[in-house]
Amino acid sequence: MHADAFDRYYHAESPLHRLDPRVKVFLTVAFILSNALLSDGVWAAFGLAWLLILFANRFSGLGVEFSFKRSFIALPFALAAVSAIFIPAGQPLAEWTIGPIQLVPTDFGLMRFASILLRSWLSVQAGILLVAVTQFPDMIHAFEHLRVPAILTTIIAFLYRYLFVLTDEVMRLLRARESRSAALPGLKSGGSLFWRARVAGNMAGQLFLRSYERSDRIYNAMLARGYQGQMRTLRSHTMTRRDWLILSLGLFALIFLQLLARL
């Protein structure tokens, strides 16, 4: 499998790519928080939030529709909110009878459902844009600067580095299983569910032990280069005046949006 399968970074020369990763992370979190603070049905504020996303897309150099095209990943989860349509509050809009079940969509319920989806859709787009314009290691540094404990960020950095190595190992295991999953015409193949789960379990156990032993070797490699239990990192990012400017502009926009929602 090609390593790029897990990369979400899209290279371009853009103001957004050049922006300090701390500003990007901070504004993304603030934007998602701001969405959560919006009441149901404040359509103007939702619209403005969407404009902000379009604006950010525009300055990412990746195209205005970039995050929109990738924003449907959270859609399956919308199923969880469908029942909100039938909340017994406000005016009933219709009455559907399916067998023994009677469904009554209400205007309140529909507004609630739409608002939940909008909040989620806007927040997901902010996240998509963030990883598209920020190299993941830079993002990890940003969290370090924002006072997330270094142990946690380093563990995530290790996870990021080795997910490529270990998923390759999984693909090899799966391929080996595949190539031996033969069937003869007329014979039932594949064994029972129990047996198949056991095969997967053995693979998981094997992968676990290999990973466990690998962590020993990596630990040795770290010791060999002077590691003494303290992770050190270079704090190489410095905020420029431009970074501060964009940070304040972004925060002002979000405050304006919140005020608009409360008018």
Binding site: L166, L174, R196, A200, S211, Y212, S215, I218, Y227
Partner: peptide, 29 residues
């Protein structure tokens, strides 16, 4: 940190990668 000491970071990091990779181990139901 107390129980694993210096090994904490590499062991936890690799085990996290293990969980991530193991989630790709699917089996037909």
């Amino acid at each position: 940190n107390k129980t694993l000491g210096e090994k904490q970071v590499p062991l936890m990091g690799i085990m996290a990668a293990f969980i991530f990779a193991a989630q790709m181990l699917n089996f037909p139901v």
